[in-house]
């Protein structure tokens, strides 16, 4: 599978120094994505999913490990290599309220990346390109001179998408792009993102805590827990045959908008263990109903239990 992978991440680690020691935000995550596919990354707040996305893009430089994009190691890219990479790889932010400079209007916001990367030259060409981009993301051209605070969340997120698309990237990290939006607007943006992917063959890393959204948009899903990967497999496989105890608990905890679903909620007591100076062993052990002694002493290896289904758990056989 690594042969035709567009992006390959090997044993990526990102530690942040904090007063109490070292915060292991991402601790040895490996995965790969094929071109044109979507990898959903799910997990609870603080599990390191956003840090992972930023580390892949080099916005937070990785502490250890490798990020390989189209055969090139871009983990520590500098200068022109870094600039080129940023044209290929883009990010869409969670909060369309804070990721847009409130002093710029739509035209200025969308033309900024065009100017930085010298994609268009001259005022006329830039304006034409901005209009084209607004058309692509479904923003009426009458909003060209509006400021972000005058627009609703959905339209703001469309500006964010237009900005990301302006440099014509192949790969986009979507960091909770719909979490700040109301459901009816959320659906509009999800449809737009899926259309764009189809038209342009984009590759997405789609980071979210919303399992129904991730199921809708992803080809493959990776479940993260406290900086580590718990499980990764195809979307259908995850929902039909979850293996990791955390995945099972997570799936059972989602409130389903239907009154006919009878469910056995697996109660996960307690809270996520702190990722600051973590103890050796499985991060999930303290909440896991199946935890054995081994779980507290040894970090489980990621195993491929089925083709394309990776799980990191000691007790798969016992369960």
């Amino acid at each position: 599978m690594a042969n035709n992978a567009q992006l390959e991440v090997k044993n990526l680690k990102k530690y942040f120094p904090v007063p109490a020691g070292s915060l292991h935000a991402v601790d040895g995550v490996s995965f790969s994505i094929e071109a044109g596919k979507t990898l959903g990354v799910v997990g609870e707040s603080g599990c390191g999913k956003s840090t992972l996305g930023r580390a892949v893009l080099g916005l937070n430089e990785a502490t250890d490990g490798q990020v390989i994009f189209e055969g090139k190691d871009i983990t520590h890219a500098r200068g022109n290599a870094k600039k080129d990479m940023k044209k290929e790889m883009q990010i869409i932010f969670q909060d369309p309220y804070s990721s847009l400079d409130s002093r710029m209007n739509v035209q200025q916001l969308i033309s900024e990346p065009l100017k930085i990367n010298k994609i268009t030259h001259g005022k006329e060409e830039t304006e034409k390109k901005v209009k084209e981009l607004m058309d692509i993301v479904g923003l009426a051209s009458r909003f060209r001179l509006s400021y972000p605070h005058e627009l609703d969340g959905g339209r703001r997120q469309r500006i964010g998408i237009a900005r990301a698309l302006s440099v014509e990237p192949k790969f986009i990290v979507c960091d909770e792009p719909v979490s700040a939006l109301d459901v009816s607007i959320q659906a509009q943006i999800l449809n737009l993102m899926m259309d764009l992917q189809e038209e342009r063959g984009l590759t997405y890393i789609f980071i979210t805590h919303n399992l129904s959204v991730v199921k809708h948009i992803s080809d493959e899903i990776m479940v993260m827990y406290s900086g580590t990967m718990a499980e990764k497999c195809s979307c259908d496989e995850l929902f039909e045959n979850p293996l990791h105890p955390y995945t099972k608990g997570l799936l059972s905890a989602i409130p389903i908008p239907s009154i006919h679903v009878e469910r056995n909620r697996i109660h996960m007591e307690g809270e996520v263990t702190s990722p600051i100076n973590p103890k050796p062993g499985c991060r999930f052990a303290s909440r896991c109903p199946y935890a054995s002694e081994k779980c507290y002493s040894e970090m489980p290896e990621t195993r491929e239990v089925k083709a394309g289904h990776f799980v990191a758990c000691h007790n798969l056989e016992a369960m």
Binding site: G154, V183, I185, L211
Partner: peptide, 23 residues
């Protein structure tokens, strides 16, 4: 009904969501 249609379903795979148009 529009609200229900906007939520991606966990039970079945939907190709396309049907959002409520407008604001």
């Amino acid at each position: 009904k529009g609200l229900f249609n906007s939520i991606p379903s966990l039970d079945k795979k939907t190709d396309r969501l049907m959002p409520i148009r407008g604001l």
